[in-house]
């Protein structure tokens, strides 16, 4: 137990590293037996990570801007074309025949066949309703 006391009395800085304990724990470090241990450790991790890192690089290359540009490249011309077609159709729909004021003569002959008045009157009395009506009148 006297040896234990000796160890307890060894240099111990509560705020720093306890060199006695550090020395005791030293053999637990894998590099004690193998100085290149940590180098190989890192190499193994990096080998295992290579696929994921490559995937991340690929994803990083395709930025949000790239996605927007590629999207815009296809969508914007289509949208412009659709807008132009819609505008054209709207314009054509608005070009309806303008309502011109009807004249009195036109109103009088509206619905009548395009025949001269003498020709119409020369028909027999029973031939048409118009002749009969004109007779009565």
């Amino acid at each position: 137990m006297s040896h234990g006391r000796k160890v307890q009395d060894s240099a111990t800085d509560e705020l720093g590293r306890d060199m006695a304990v550090a020395e005791l724990l030293g053999p637990l470090s894998p590099e004690v037996d193998d100085p290149s241990y940590w180098m190989r450790f890192k190499t193994r991790v990096m080998r295992g990570a290579s696929g994921e890192l490559a995937r991340r690089r690929l994803m990083a290359d395709v930025t949000v801007g790239d996605v927007l540009v590629s999207w815009a490249r296809a969508v914007v011309p289509t949208a412009v074309l659709a807008a132009a077609l819609a505008g054209l159709m709207l314009m054509r729909a608005h070009v309806a025949p303008a309502a011109t004021p009807a004249r009195v003569e036109e109103l009088l002959v509206a619905g009548m066949e395009s025949e001269t008045i003498p020709a119409t009157l020369s028909r027999s009395e029973t031939e048409t309703q118009i002749a009969f009506a004109s007779e009565r009148f």
Partner: peptide, 26 residues
């Protein structure tokens, strides 16, 4: 940087914390 696939940056993180990670695991 590692998120963007920077191998060197991830390597530095591994080197920096491999001992601590081992100690915690141990």
């Amino acid at each position: 940087r590692a998120r963007r696939g920077d191998e060197f940056a991830f390597g530095v993180l591994v080197e920096r914390y491999q001992r601590a990670a081992y100690a915690v695991a141990y």
